[in-house]
Design a protein around this nucleic acid. Structure first.
Lengths: 245, 245
DNA sequence: TAGTGGTCTAGACCACAAA
DNA sequence: TTGTGGTCTAGACCACTAA
């Protein structure tokens, strides 16, 4: 390592920030996969020529960004999705009592298509790039409540259609295990819309009924958009809930 | 200080957590008001009988919770609201381009009332407790887009009606300056609803038009609910946007 | 028992702000 | 110049995990 710790330091950002960047980049490159253990703090300290305290501060910060998980007595691990945590981290739908719920999914169709102008802009794609379209209905207490359309670039999700039988309820652990794509952040844009014919059919409401439309763009660890998801939600007995701090 | 640092430590939580709690409580009690400077790290360290590093860790954590603000070379200050930051922290409405916007407000009415069953449950009040009701319309580019109803316990906001002329656009800095109430957190529940007669009049939509209803409960630093706010938003050219991490 | 992360200390130097 | 928070180090001990 000659990039850091050549006193006087040629890079004027704090050492621990540089260490954060080095380790984050190595995780992004896949040097350690989801769930794998990283070298211990003293190893990093020696390798990078800084004190263990500095490595600790760097790793603590990376852990706060949920890129790694620290476990006392065991080590520091690359974060991974589990069906369980998906529920709380990216899914904000609650029932009438304010409890988080995870509706079951019924897959309608996986089809092959090309990026529209909307997809281009949202997913940062070239015009006409091949994409997958996944249509699902999500069901709560035997009632269909969400009409869901997911758009994915084919390039990142090769042969997705062959896996349609094994498509699980929570997709982000599936993306991680099948395609090595870790969803790290998402931006959601919400509006109120009228039910269209497709909604009427899938979630059994009358034409024009007010639905909550959630448009989500999901990003990987590098900050590139990876998934575009549009959910149209029936909000009688369900709602979208979030805490602002 | 005998609560901490009497080796062997009778309280088995980490020292810095105990220090966090002590300082937080003293802020809650109002020992230092919004914007005021706290004692310096070495002062706290001596007073509490711990090292400066432990105080530092405690204050860093309190700062992450946005209860204090740290300024290099100046000191550590109790957090305060400004009209500017209100925009980004608790107001999630964006325009068509995804830019944060702050609509202007037009006050319709401040009235005196008593807590309904809903208010009781949401604001943790006794039945029939006196409350204020503030009705406002919020305007973006000369178009009314949000119909807003705010419910506040009278006890916490005495003589609010006398201040109706000076009611500003952003209320949380007003609550802080006029009533010493610092809004620290809020929970929002969103659903899609049909426009009611009142909405039709205030934001000029037809009966039944889909609106985004945002129901917000705002909490003070102690975690007690303080404000109940219902906003019904016209979402053509505006939307609710949030980033999940 | 050995190795991991978690806590705590003491002390040094730096960057920044105000008097 | 003084005092603040920010960074960095070195070393100690603790709590937890796995072999």
């Amino acid at each position: 390592m000659n990039k850091i710790k050549t006193p006087p330091n040629p890079d004027f950002r704090p050492l621990y920030v540089q260490v954060m960047e080095i380790i984050s980049k190595r995780i992004e490159k896949g040097e350690w996969g989801p769930g794998e253990v990283l070298p211990a703090e003293p190893k990093f300290a020696e390798e990078l020529g800084v004190s263990q305290g500095t490595v600790r501060k760097a790793l603590d910060n990376i852990a706060r960004k949920k890129i790694v998980v620290r476990r006392q007595g065991r080590g520091t691990f690359v974060a991974e999705h589990s069906p369980d945590m998906s529920l709380f981290r990216f899914f904000r739908i609650v029932d009438g009592a304010g409890k988080a719920v995870m509706p079951q999914s019924r897959l309608l169709k996986i089809s092959s298509s090309r990026a529209t102008t909307l997809h281009q802009r949202m997913l940062n794609l070239q015009k006409g790039t091949p994409v997958w379209k996944i249509e699902r209905v999500r069901i709560l207490k035997k009632r269909p409540v969400i009409n869901e359309l997911i758009v994915l670039p084919k390039k990142l999700f090769p042969d997705l259609d062959r896996l349609d039988e094994s498509l699980p309820n929570t997709l982000y652990d599936f993306y991680q295990n099948q395609f090595g794509i870790f969803i790290h952040q998402a931006r959601e844009t919400l509006s109120a819309v009228e039910a269209e014919p497709r909604d009427c059919k899938n979630i059994r409401v009358e034409r024009g009924f007010p639905l909550l439309e959630i448009r989500r763009i999901a990003y990987n660890v590098s900050g590139d958009p990876v998934e575009l998801r549009t959910s149209r939600v029936y909000t009688r007995g369900t709602a979208y809930q979030i805490t602002l701090r």
